[in-house]
Amino acid sequence: MMASVEFIVRIGLWFLLPPLLPGIVNRVKAWVAGRRGPPVLQLYYDLARLWRKGVVLSDLASPGFIAGPAVAWVAVAGAALLLPLGPLGSLLSFRGDVILLVYLLALARFCTAWAAMETGSSFEGMGAAREVSYAVLAEASVITAVLALSVQSGSVSLARMMEPAVGSGGVLLAAGLFTVLLAENCRVPFDDPATHLELTMIHEVMVLDHSGPPLAVILHGASMKLLLYALLLVQAVVPLGGLSFPAAVAVLAGGVLAVTVGVGLVESLLARFAFRRVPLLLTTAFLLCLFALLVAWNGGAA
């Protein structure tokens, strides 16, 4: 009984909170640029509007064009439910759940890329090709980060891996994971979610032909993924173990807010990188995670 109540509460949280994040990012960007900017709740309005709209479907699109975003959303939501939430712990924790989380995100990527390729538009093809290619490097970083956490904690389940130690390893891991967060969520300097120049984008260009409810599902899924990565980053770096329940929740929320503001600041202060520099940056992220792994390995031996 309790479990099902908790399940519903968590689903509700994951359903309601994520669209807040892009709103905060946009607010920060507007603040840095000295504009007033859209309201923080803008994405909620957009989602509600899109959900009520009709759909224009390409002649070429198969049922997979609709099913893709739905399955991708379920996959991201599943990954989100596996993630422990600080003092709340996780809904279901088992050995190797972290691998399931990583691969659920990969499933979401498969479905989004599949849906993008449905229309036969060269722009979407370009976006999908970039998405799956850069994900190769991001995946290496994520697996390395997982290894670092697992070596550090001596465990392979998420709930116990999220007990980080403070030190240089944490700093390295934070930098690496933040870069991966930017890449996987298609933010500047990898991608510019604000631009409308199709040739330069990754994620936005994949959803060019989507409209109405499927687009709403895609946007909600993207914001959920951002929140997921932010939570993962905060819990992988900030030790919450010793704090009391309200303090831990506050630190967690504060951490997520800090990450979001950080994304907004990066987006205001940096320009999007030329595509040939993207692999270099992702390799750097990989090396940061690798050195975090090295520190974790040495830390235990000493």
Binding site: P279, L280, T283, T284, L287, L290, F291, L294, N298
Partner: peptide, 17 residues
Amino acid sequence: GFIPSLLLGAAGTIAAV
């Protein structure tokens, strides 16, 4: 290239440690 030399350098560092 930059990426191969980066990876080489990282491998060297890890080997040194």
